[in-house]
Nucleic acid binder design. Sequence first.
DNA 1: ATTGACTTAATTGTCTGACAATTGCAAGCT
DNA 2: AGCTTGCAATTGTCAGACAATTAAGTCAAT
Lengths: 238, 238
Amino acid sequence: MTASVTPLRRPRMHDELSRQLGAMIVNGDVAPGETLPNEMSLCEQYGVSRSVVRECLRVLASKGLLVARARVGTIVQTPDHWQLMDNDILSWMESGPALEKLLKSLIETRLLIEPEAAAMAARRARATDLVAIESALDDMALTEADRDAHFDADFAFHAAIIAASGNVIFGQFLGVIRKALIESFKRSSRRTAQRQVALPRHTAVFDAIRAKDETAARLAMTELLDEARKVLFAEPET
Amino acid sequence: MTASVTPLRRPRMHDELSRQLGAMIVNGDVAPGETLPNEMSLCEQYGVSRSVVRECLRVLASKGLLVARARVGTIVQTPDHWQLMDNDILSWMESGPALEKLLKSLIETRLLIEPEAAAMAARRARATDLVAIESALDDMALTEADRDAHFDADFAFHAAIIAASGNVIFGQFLGVIRKALIESFKRSSRRTAQRQVALPRHTAVFDAIRAKDETAARLAMTELLDEARKVLFAEPET
DNA sequence: ATTGACTTAATTGTCTGACAATTGCAAGCT
DNA sequence: AGCTTGCAATTGTCAGACAATTAAGTCAAT
């Protein structure tokens, strides 16, 4: 198994702190326009040195969450400055109205991007691309019992199709797609039936791509995503 | 005029250094997999303290350009790790094969996103949204002589439509769209006629949105972008 | 010869303390 | 009122030290 070979490095303090402060900001615990405590206060508050605090603030600023100005402090930016496609920011976002809005916008966008990606894959896919897609599909079938493994396979499926499309901008969506998939799995956790419904839809996409049928690929992907939308935004099961 | 009211803060050293190192990486002056000189060497090389170097490297790492590991050094990541939608990274990219590839992918993506944004604007636009779009359009008409001002107006036009769509993910495209527009203006610099051709196409989009005609808006925007594609990828004029 | 434990050294990670640069704000002057 | 000027708070930069991590070498045991 080549799964989960993450280097497993010990967390570094500035990463931890970035995560904490970043999460506070993107989850609205501190309002845009407010100024954070000054660097020294943060040092005391979190028990770290100023180097750590500064490197952390610098990172958050570079992602559009903050602006720092001498004498006035570091100010939380309004959400329209946030780089929402940044993988860190996405990983910091917890369930809440902000995430909900993001997911709604995202599914609209995916419905534009991914069917086209599937069509392009049907047109240009090389053998190795097809192998990657099929392998992900096989993994999905094999892992219906294991939620985490099934999740990885599902994500790999979408990633492989986008990779086959050859569009580098599409590739930038993998982070948000992953986030959407995480939420989707959370919300359908109790319905194991969901996965059995999902599999044939994925298979249909792959079959169309392998057959080089652009129109069918586009359609199959659209249907798959429509299903995903229902799972994400359906009334919670009673 | 409310144009160009940028606070005009003096550049800070870590920003300068980020720009330099970041540009070197995204423009391929240093190959993925290579390790940068260690922090002390960079200090000497650029005549700055280690704080500056570290904050800079930390930022670049957070954008996916680098990974730093104790004892082994900071290694340039492969381009598929780069957060291409990041505004800084975009601003660092100079003309070259990488930018060309990005622009090709981008125009494909814009042709999916922006016509739909126009259609959504036609459906949901409020009065203030319409004012913003029309105002940008007026500015375009008034600034045909002034290249920079015309650029600002053109960008504002696209931004206003995307804002009116109400989709936050679409909003994340403004950075890349801006970059595409910059290149577009560079390449059509000598053809002043281009601007006279562009204006009616923009007007058509606005008219459709104001008339709440989704289909017409979608179509007009598609035609506008097709024109833009021609400008960007046409053979250089002889 | 391969493995495993130990040492070494190079590099990033963190801490501390200092000073420079920026700038909101208030006091004082005209 | 309007302008200038100095103060002080905060970020920005510098310097030097030590801690933690870990690639690579050394050496012994099997």
